[in-house]
């Protein structure tokens, strides 16, 4: 393999790709993960030109942008239009976090009647312009890569950015959290403590954070590539979870992801709700 001569600093600066960071319906936690990169943040600023990132800087460089990170889900008519603009001005569009990739916690509205709770919660519901469902970015525009997590993992975020800059495939596995849990040498909380854990059906990426602190996995990275939700649901009830609890554990950060949504509905008592996915 030959490694070609590196251009000088000026040329490198010229070659720096521009990065834009966009926010939709979200808590800003994933953008904070980017800001929390600390040591790596300077290196990131050297590797890309941060052209649009309102959470971090007021300076705005005109688009189009080479890489866009999109946080948040689509919940309002305004967002429906804005995401089309973001797509139009972005080279590579990468969605980050459970909101952007699966609708987020706010997708709980998909299981309820928005008009009804809007009228209960707000004195003037007529001022509110909102959609009846929270949907991931990929339901509206084409997405180049989806990075899971609530929030995303800092190392994974940097890996996706590095891969994007270097034009290679990001090294983001889609297998279960258990792989990371065992690689870390954790004692399994389900087997040894009887603690319910969604790790077996959840995609890795967090480094098995919760099981490392003796907590069961909450599924914040969404379903792994081969999720057997029916079997894990059986285990959860064996470990003493009631049906409503099983419904709830599948309806947290990734409630609208297809495998979790379907499994949660299987455990609902009473008439089947109408929370079809965007694809329906």
């Amino acid at each position: 393999m030959t490694v070609t001569d590196r251009p000088g600093a000026a040329a490198t600066a010229r070659a720096r790709p521009t990065l834009a960071v966009w926010k939709f319906a979200s808590c800003d936690g994933c953008q904070l993960t980017l800001l929390n990169c600390e040591d790596e943040l300077l290196r990131l600023a050297g590797a890309v030109e941060i052209a649009y990132f309102p959470e971090a800087t007021r300076a705005v460089v005109e688009g189009p942008y080479d890489v866009s990170l999109v946080e948040g889900s689509i919940t309002t008519p305004e967002e429906l239009e804005r995401i089309q603009h973001v797509r139009a001005v972005s080279g590579r569009l990468i969605t980050i976090g459970a909101c952007a990739t699966a609708g987020g916690i706010q997708a709980l509205r998909n299981f309820g009647d928005v008009a009804e709770f809007r009228s209960i919660v707000y004195a003037h519901p007529e001022y509110l312009s909102t959609l009846s469902r929270s949907t991931p970015i990929s339901a509206h525009v084409s997405v180049d890569f989806e990075l899971r997590g609530c929030p995303v993992n800092k190392h994974q975020l940097l890996e996706v950015l590095a891969a994007s800059i270097q034009d290679r495939k990001p090294r983001i596995p889609s297998h279960s959290v258990c792989v990371e849990c065992k690689r870390r040498g954790n004692v399994c909380v389900t087997v040894a403590h009887g603690t319910p854990c969604l790790g077996p059906v959840t995609q890795a990426g967090c480094g098995a954070l919760c099981p490392s602190f003796d907590r069961g996995c909450y599924g914040c990275f969404g379903p792994q590539d081969t999720p057997n939700t029916a079997s894990i649901a059986h285990q959860l009830s064996e470990l003493g979870m009631s049906e409503p609890e099983v419904v709830r554990i599948f309806r947290t950060f990734n409630a609208a992801s297809e495998p979790f949504r379907r499994e949660s509905e299987r455990h609902e008592t009473g008439p089947a709700p109408s929370a079809e996915g965007e694809d329906a």
Binding site: R43, A47, C178, V179, K182, C188, P200, V201
Partner: peptide, 25 residues
């Protein structure tokens, strides 16, 4: 569950994968 725990704890399972990592710069 296709969770891999059996293979991770098995004392004879030896399968590995090779991962290349490069930094931002």
């Amino acid at each position: 569950l296709a969770c891999t725990n059996c293979t991770m704890v098995c004392p004879t399972c030896f399968c590995t994968t090779v991962e290349d990592v490069s930094d931002l710069s």
